[in-house]
Write a protein that binds this DNA or RNA. Structure first.
Lengths: 116, 116
DNA sequence: CTTATACTTAACTAACGTGTTAATTAACAC
DNA sequence: GTGTTAATTAACACGTTAGTTAAGTATAAG
């Protein structure tokens, strides 16, 4: 089996599953609730599988209530992914840093210029 | 073909590819440089594929220099993933919020208690 | 006890991902 | 030209993923 991070990213690499997380971010939902937006596109067993992928990746928890299976977004599930990605934040903020550095430098140059 | 976000997450769902990004975060590298840590585990064509996955996901750029193919981490590539994940930040910071709320409440209760 | 609802499991298929080896292209060096 | 280095492409194998339909389980409701 794969490491947790790979499992998490793999679970996120599917629009259906991301939509399910989006729905769960608005509150608890049963499997059939999660299925509803997709039943024209795919069958219930397909939904069951998607839910299981999210569960195994630690992104949701599924409990029991009579014949229903209420699912909840798991707060810390996305954290490993977020933490990994955050390591690279500097690389997409780099251009701003450069702009920032440029602005500071040119401001300083201007001041120096005026001083002299 | 898949949407960009799915492609990005799928590209990240592999430890080899994540290691390549880690290496590229320390500076530009040719395909053979990227291959080096893995040549005991897999062949060069396998590396070529991984590099292509990263490229197609927009996570790196590959250029030409004679017979070498220098690769660079693409700053904004991870941004789509980071932005998506950040939507959910509140859910893993929730527990802190709750702690925060609890502390505020108990502080207030204590004060009220003393008042009465 | 029967039926309905909610969901899962089983069995199967098609597509995809990831690896292999062998052959190929491209640029350089002699 | 010949040979070497760097990387890719082709053809194939194999496991995994994602979907299907049909059957099964479990709880509730009449």
């Amino acid at each position: 089996m794969q490491d947790n991070l790979s499992q998490t990213f793999a679970a996120l690499a599917d629009p259906t599953r991301r939509a399910m997380l989006a729905q769960l971010s608005k509150g608890e939902a049963n499997v059939s609730d999660l299925a509803k937006p997709f039943l024209k596109k795919m069958s219930l067993p397909a939904i069951t599988r998607h839910v299981k992928v999210l569960e195994r990746a630690g992104l949701i928890t599924k409990t029991r209530d009579a014949q229903w299976r209420p699912c909840k977004l798991r707060g810390d599930g996305l954290r490993v992914a977020a933490d990994w990605v955050d390591q690279y934040r500097v690389f997409w903020e780099e251009s701003f840093d450069r702009l920032d550095a440029y602005l500071k430098k040119s401001l300083k140059d201007t001041k120096d210029g005026h001083k002299k």
